[in-house]
């Protein structure tokens, strides 16, 4: 970290300095929120203007939120896996902050992916839930998010939870390709991929455009919320450190009075 003090830090070191990170993220943040809102609103509006699907009728509208949520719950774990490398390999001071801040957001989007899928499944499959490969692997992902939230918040000392949390995230990442390819590997009610396919998306533009806009919008929303949550986590650690400092000062003051 010596580069931080030289005045001309490298790109990586700039982001390693929490104060610099707070400055930069503060500038980017409002733009991210604005772009996210714009993309989500445009995407969902176009989605409601799109014609009904010839097989699924109006329920195809659920796709414009369900697919982005499902995509996000996998992407957020991947973002955390990259952060975990930051913790374990480079000991990047913000990597652990990133994991702790992302976990609850990822859990919410995983719940929503399961919930909207379930609501879509009821009229289309005739059941709210089946224990098949896709649904079960996403359910396992939710359990892992909850475990990670517990782990990152169980210990008072933030540094102590950093390493086990990073290891859990990396080991748990094995589940992401399982989720992605579960529809190809096993028999399932869930339909196979329609967008990310080797031969290109198998969907007409009037569905694909709103879907992509909505996916971009929710992805931007995640990054905006993640930035805010990371900034808050940095402040929380400062508050904790300062409170300890204040307590030590008060103790010293008292012992001087007693002497």
């Amino acid at each position: 970290m010596s580069t931080v003090a030289t005045g001309r830090p490298g790109r990586f070191a700039i982001l390693a300095n929490p104060t610099r990170f707070l400055e930069l993220s503060g500038k980017i943040q409002p733009w991210l929120y604005a772009l996210a809102a714009l993309a989500i609103l445009t995407g969902l509006t176009l989605g409601f203007m799109a014609p009904e699907d010839y097989q699924q009728g109006a329920t195809v509208r659920i796709m414009f939120i369900h697919v982005p949520f499902a995509w996000l719950c996998m992407m957020i774990w991947t973002v955390m896996a990259l952060s975990a490398l930051g913790t374990l390999v480079w000991r990047h001071p913000l990597a652990d902050v990133s994991i702790k801040a992302a976990a609850p957001i990822g859990a919410v989007f995983t719940v929503l992916a399961l919930l909207t899928g379930s609501i879509w499944g009821r009229p289309m499959w005739g059941t709210w839930w089946v224990w098949d490969a896709r649904l079960t692997s996403v359910f396992v992902l939710l359990i892992m998010y909850l475990g990670l939230i517990a782990l990152t918040r169980a210990l008072d000392e933030p540094g102590k939870a950093a390493k086990p949390a990073a290891i859990l995230v990396l080991v748990g990442w094995v589940n992401i390709p399982i989720i992605k390819f579960s529809v190809d590997w096993w028999n399932t009610l869930h339909q196979p991929a329609s967008v990310m396919r080797a031969d290109g998306p198998s969907m007409p533009a009037e569905f694909l455009t709103p879907l992509l806009l909505s996916a971009v919008g929710f992805t931007l929303l995640f990054f905006a919320l993640h930035l805010t949550a990371m900034r808050t986590e940095i402040l929380r650690r400062r508050v904790e450190a300062l409170s300890r400092l204040a307590a030590r000062k008060a103790e010293r003051g008292q012992s001087e009075v007693a002497a």
């Binding site: 109006a58 329920t59 659920i62 939120i65 369900h66 919930l115 909207t116 009821r122 009229p123």
Partner: peptide, 8 residues
């Protein structure tokens, strides 16, 4: 169903 999904 659609309202419930969007509402939740």
């Amino acid at each position: 169903f659609i309202l419930a999904a969007y509402g939740f």
